[in-house]
Amino acid sequence: MRRLLTALSVTLLLVLNTLILIGPLLLIALGKFALPGRALKAASSRGVMWVAETWAELNKLIFACLLPTAWDIRGGGELRRDTSYLVISNHQSWVDIPALVQAFNRKTPYFKFFLKQQLIWVPLLGLAFWALDYPFMKRYSKALLAKHPELKGQDLAITKRACEKFRELPVTVVNYLEGTRFTPVKHAQQQSPYRYLLKPKAGGVAFVLAALGEQLDAVLDVTLVYPGRQIPGFWALISGQVPRVIVDIRTRPLDPALWQGDYENDGEFRQQVQDWVSQLWREKDARIAQLRDEARVEAREPVEAQGLAGK
């Protein structure tokens, strides 16, 4: 019963926060289309970002007041709001997004996610995603592309158009290289060579780098770890069943060679990007193992200390 009451309270406050701020956000967003001149349009975009950051800060306050979750954020002390970043993270759960908000909101420019096109129809949130200029991606299966080759390359065109909007202001672009949330079933089906990760897809990050590389100042290599046996879902979070989340941030320089090439048509350049992604993923897999081992040791130490104290 306590978990249910906690979840209902958190949900109610999250919904109220969204309902209160969605109106101002959409009203300011209209200025991007109605106001004359680039300066006024940019001011409107900054206003939309400010409302979104306020919404995120209030959500953080709700979590802090009602949930026992400890957000163990490591690194990121040098983050700035006047520069652009590419965030590369492993992806396990809907809890990943609140974790990124905890780590980066009002420390970096507001997030830009690449979303599935179907999400534009989600009540309220779809409108908010539109107002925030989140790019909606339409994914095509290999079978469909074989029947309709004219669709090939449309994702790249969408990415480039979306990134054009990002050139006016600093931005934090989030890219999940796995393309989907990690599950043991998917891991087994892929026969992934990594212990805690699915196989990465280099194409998406290559498109972002091609469209936005000169604007990006660094890569924020984020490793998310949920200590325990199971990866928690969003219900577990809002019902108070997630005691701790580790957000490990490593700032990496971005080699200009990674965007100065043609990923689609230059095989040598494509291999260069894929090698960079593979090395990044090998290091991330090792980092997850290290963080999980540390968390297990920390979990045992209080028990051992209590046992010694009782002797």
Rank of each mutant, 00 (worst) to 15 (best):
D266W: 06
Y263L: 11
Q241D: 15
P256L: 13
A236M: 09
R282V: 13
D293R: 11
R287G: 10
S239F: 04
G267L: 11
S239P: 10
L291A: 05
W281M: 01
A286V: 02
A299D: 12
K284C: 00
R287M: 12
V247D: 01
E301F: 15
D275G: 12
S239M: 12
R252N: 06
Q272L: 14
N265A: 11
Q260S: 13
L258G: 03
S278Y: 04
E283A: 02
Y263T: 13
T251S: 08
N265E: 09
A295L: 12
A299V: 13
A236Q: 13
L237N: 05
P256K: 10
E283T: 03
D255F: 04
T251I: 08
W235F: 15
D266K: 07
R300N: 09
W276N: 05
E298C: 03
D262S: 10
L291T: 08
P243C: 12
R250W: 02
Q271I: 15
A295C: 12
Q260N: 14
L280K: 01
L258V: 08
P256G: 04
K284I: 00
S278K: 06
A236K: 12
N265T: 12
G261R: 04
P256M: 10
I249E: 01
K284S: 00
Q274A: 12
A257R: 12
I238P: 04
D293Y: 06
E294T: 03
F234G: 07
G240A: 07
L291R: 01
E298A: 14
Q241I: 14
D285H: 01
D285P: 02
R292S: 11
D275V: 08
I249D: 04
V297N: 11
E298G: 03
V247Y: 00
E268L: 09
D248T: 00
Q241A: 15
V245W: 03
A286C: 04
Q271V: 14
R292Y: 06
W276E: 04
W259N: 13
Q271G: 15
Q260D: 12
L254D: 02
F234T: 08
E283P: 01
P256V: 07
A257W: 09
W235C: 15
N265M: 09
E294N: 04
R252L: 09
V303S: 09
D262N: 14
P256Y: 05
E294F: 01
G267T: 10
T251W: 00
R296T: 15
Q279F: 01
V245C: 07
Q271K: 15
V273K: 01
P253W: 05
W259F: 15
G267Q: 06
Y263A: 14
D285Q: 00
D285N: 00
